[in-house]
Design a protein around this nucleic acid. Sequence first.
DNA 1: ACTGATGCTTGAAGAGGTCAAGTGTCGTGT
DNA 2: ACACGACACTTGACCTCTTCAAGCATCAGT
Lengths: 129, 129
Amino acid sequence: MASTRPASKATLAADVWRDLFAFFWRSGSRNAMVLVSQELGLTPGHVKALLELQPDQPRPTGALAEALHCDASNATWLVDRLEEGGLVERGTVPTDRRVKTVVLTPLGAKTRAEVIDRLHEPPEDLLAL
Amino acid sequence: MASTRPASKATLAADVWRDLFAFFWRSGSRNAMVLVSQELGLTPGHVKALLELQPDQPRPTGALAEALHCDASNATWLVDRLEEGGLVERGTVPTDRRVKTVVLTPLGAKTRAEVIDRLHEPPEDLLAL
DNA sequence: ACTGATGCTTGAAGAGGTCAAGTGTCGTGT
DNA sequence: ACACGACACTTGACCTCTTCAAGCATCAGT
């Protein structure tokens, strides 16, 4: 395990990263998102969207799309379904009536907190250290 | 950051995990897989499949499906497309002619190595330590 | 050899995501 | 003030990925 003396700072960082990444991969965390989504009856896309929103902090749809690295229309669709579920609400910003903002409802904030709890929950192998 | 004295081993592990997870999340590694996939003209599913295969080590389709937490038919489809691209080849195991094995071709092994390189590549903020 | 179970494949259907066009609003130059 | 292009979001058609249900070939037990 990375017992070779690193030639430089960069290679050290690379080594650390590689080990860290391998641990993440093997620990099953790669699809933790998918599992959590299924448990809560959401899709991975919705969960990612929830995580991008912070309570009491409205955000334009476009910013959401950019953060999610997806199309603006997809962001619209995601927000539609989240709104149907009562997790978010749309709003407008007075300075520019083109933009529609998205903000978490109390239920949305609760759900988001639950998602975060579940993602942080299982260290599994980490307990064995 | 986690300056509180942990009450137990479990809470320590939870703290470490939470910080680690937050770092992963903020570092942009959450969608590294998607980006790498796009760069190589593959889908995330195909990349995951490649990573589950080890060079010169044939693996039954079913085992692949289980590792990927997906349907067997989906595994078949993934292997079909990988085979079209010349990244894998199908084979049979003499002891049981029902199972079809999947093994990396030289090109597949090369592509897999490239994927791993790119995934391990960007520590970004890690260099700042 | 017959029967049930297993492993993979095929086809139809569903969900998630992108692309192109449409609507309403803003900023700017005239 | 008004017309023009640019911008933000929405809508609809379309495509890919994934799953579900059924089918075929093979194996193991009786």
